[in-house]
């Protein structure tokens, strides 16, 4: 697909749109369908599209593998620590009320934070998994070239 000029041009417009859509469902999740998980998948899909068109190496330059891995852990930790904040501030685990003074504000803050955590984890893990699957083929081929039968 890399040679296809039209695709590249279309992608150049499409990918930012997909990313934007991802961000929208991430942060608009309380008002319309969507949330961290869907957003993560959409963002990852955008990145995968990028990788399919421009090549995996290029895509990995945007987000290196190691960064994905760290961000995946960061996402779940963000969730868990947000939960822990409830305990530290005098409530129960995952109790969002103590986080901010206003009740609604506190809940919304908590929901947005944990959804963001989910989103980050989902996006990075999906990218990571795709990276490994996609790279496997070239690794096999490299192996065949090294030791021809």
């Amino acid at each position: 697909m890399r040679e296809n000029g039209i695709l590249r041009i279309v992608a150049r417009f499409l990918i930012p749109l997909i990313m934007l859509f991802g961000l929208y469902i991430q942060f608009h999740g309380e008002y319309s369908p969507g949330g961290g998980f869907q957003a993560g998948v959409v963002v990852a899909a955008g990145w995968i599209l990028f990788a399919l068109i421009y090549g995996l190496e290029a895509a990995l330059k945007v987000i290196p593998e190691r960064v994905m891995y760290v961000l995946a852990a960061f996402g779940v930790l963000l969730y868990a620590i947000t939960g822990l904040m409830g305990v530290i501030l005098g409530g129960r685990y995952l109790d969002f009320y103590p986080l901010l003074p206003g009740e609604h504000a506190a809940q919304q803050f908590g929901i947005i934070t944990v959804e963001f955590g989910v989103g980050v984890t989902v996006a990075t893990v999906v990218m990571l998994i795709f990276t490994y699957f996609a790279r496997r083929k070239s690794e096999w081929e490299a192996l065949s070239e090294e030791e021809p039968e």
Partner: peptide, 17 residues
């Protein structure tokens, strides 16, 4: 919690764990 999307509310707060 002032969140109109009930699914999001249940997902991220009521059944957050």
């Amino acid at each position: 919690m002032g969140v109109p999307n009930m699914v999001a509310a249940v997902l991220a707060s009521y059944r957050s764990i």
